[in-house]
Amino acid sequence: MGASGSMRLKREWVGYSLTAPAFVWLCLTIVLPLAVMLYFSFLSAMPMGMAKPTLTLGQYQTFFEKDFYRFLTWRSITLGLYVTLTCVVVGYPAALILARLVKGRWREAVLLLVVLPFWSNALIRVFAWTMVLRTNGIIDQAVQLIAPSLSLGILYSYPAIVIGLVHSFVPYMILTCYISLQAIDDSLIEAGQALGATNFTIFRRIILPLSLPGLCVGIVLTFVPVVGSFMEPRILGGPQGIMLGTVIEDQFTEVFNWPLGAALSFTLLALVAVIFLVTSPLLRRGFRTA
């Protein structure tokens, strides 16, 4: 017993020392900063010099009392809804075609083409859209060839933000939907056909329910970053680009009101947490198929 006990102890010790660096690293960069940030959100002012800030709910009170911040939060949420919905409408059919119609090497190639830009710099892709959407840009000039009186420079507008963000996240949506769509057993669909179901019934009763987990993962993984986005609205939205994210950015880089920035961040985080909680049963199934 003694020997095997000490063996087990030694194995455990090896295990702990292998995981310790990752654990410490994540504590130092994720857990501690979030804890300090939470503490900051209850401070009355920046702790600087001699002035000692007091603990207060004032920052959160500002958020809930001023219409401006509620308006901002609502703007960020609606932006998230628009972008996510467009991503579903564009991405799901693409994933369906990829999983059911395209075969073999073609499928691999198209899939790679879809994910390639997803890992390239988001900032650069947003920058690319400024080239396309600007007045006298490609789209504007093309439109003017057909209808000379029409000007379609939509850079610095709300649609520009939506287009840029859809471009950033639609590859994600295609990938997550595709993963759960390609896992559907062909025999289920053949059984449906044999029993006389129409294509639409097969889609509604078999394909859609079975691909729901992947769809849900795609929706959450799009909605959450979009609600917290600041660089895309800033660059593509111009004066229309003011969002919860850009105001948080300002608190840390321009205004230097870190406690308010912290309170706004945690309100955003609470929003994100609620979304994850509500969708967690579906998400768990989605990640298992992936």
């Binding site: 995981t19 990752a22 654990f23 994540l26 504590c27 960069t29 994720i30 857990v31 501690l32 900063p33 979030l34 300090v36 940030m37 900051f40 959450v224 970053p225 609600v227 917290g228 986005s229 600041f230 994210g245 948080i248 950015e249 840390f252 870190w258 920035g261 912290a262 961040s265 955003l268 985080l269 994100v272 994850f276």
Partner: peptide
């Protein structure tokens, strides 16, 4: 540790980055 792997992927980077700045 498995739970700790979640925030870097799920929390908006804006929040992670600003809290790292403060800390």
């Amino acid at each position: 540790l498995q739970v700790l792997l979640f925030p870097p992927m799920a929390v908006p980077w804006l929040i992670l980055a600003t809290s790292m700045l403060v800390f």
